[in-house]
Design a protein around this nucleic acid. Structure first.
Lengths: 147, 147
DNA sequence: TATTGTTATACTCTATAACTATA
DNA sequence: TATAGTTATAGAGTATAACAATA
């Protein structure tokens, strides 16, 4: 059994996730992206031009969902569908100029957020935080795998 | 400027949110709830029988969305719509027996998760973690308010 | 036969705007 | 005139199943 006051810690974690995702969604909306589409953009940046199938696996969603997400990103000018060079069944999703700029903005925004968020935390405190955090993440994966 | 390795800390926070919400959603699905409906159930437990208007404010969504959520919860047997005792324009959302049991399960599950998650973390480490966490949350609210 | 992506269909969450009933 | 909730409509994310084209 655990000291019940740590329930408040879980509450804080939960609230952090809420505030964080609300903020990120607002930022993304200003760029003309949604959370899911930004996730696809992020993965496309990491992988380079990709088959939809590969993106489906990377995002952990169905092929049907990728069709919808790519439809949206094509309509708003972030990516294009090109014929795949070697497999005529497949399409290759590639960035437009706008899409590449958006991907860069995502990467920069991530760095910027880390900077703003941690700027005033002393290094030794942050180190402690990070170590416990890593442990919690591992623990959560255990719990998750067992369920 | 901040040590760039703390970007990995932000990544861990983000990943924690992903794993946490995936796990919670699976648990909720086993109970026949979605995340949004569970949120309504949680608030209804805190407030007791409520007008939809009050729930809309509590969840931060539109009245239209509350109509949809309550429709879903009525259809799946968690709540009922009763006439409001003093305002004939309003409806009062109240738990069924099943709904009350679900609310209790949510509260218990929250406690249980905190227990499992923090069980093996030494108290002094957790204290450090919690203090930094509280600071980050406050910092994030500042950033959020300024934007 | 297996894989890639699409069409068809459906459910959930969310919103705005117009409308009804009541205050 | 203002408030509570609904209907109408719409966009986004998600899924399964059936299907076409290609491997």
């Amino acid at each position: 059994m655990v000291d019940p006051r740590w329930e408040a810690t879980l509450d804080r974690i939960l609230e952090l996730t809420v505030v964080l995702s609300r903020d990120m969604d607002e930022e993304l909306e200003r760029m003309g992206l949604t959370g899911s589409r930004a996730h696809l953009v992020w993965e496309l940046e990491r992988r380079g031009p990709s088959k939809q199938q590969a993106l489906a696996e990377a995002l952990g969603v169905s092929p049907r969902t990728i069709t919808a997400l790519v439809d949206g990103l094509v309509a708003t000018g972030f990516v294009t569908r090109e014929p795949h060079p070697t497999d005529r069944r497949a399409t290759q999703v590639t960035f437009t100029t706008q899409g590449r700029a958006a991907a860069k903005a995502l990467v920069d925004g991530h760095r910027e957020l880390a900077s703003q968020l941690f700027a005033e935390v002393p290094a030794d405190r942050l180190e402690c935080f990070d170590e416990v955090l890593a442990g919690l993440l591992a623990r959560l994966r255990e719990i998750s795998a067992r369920a």
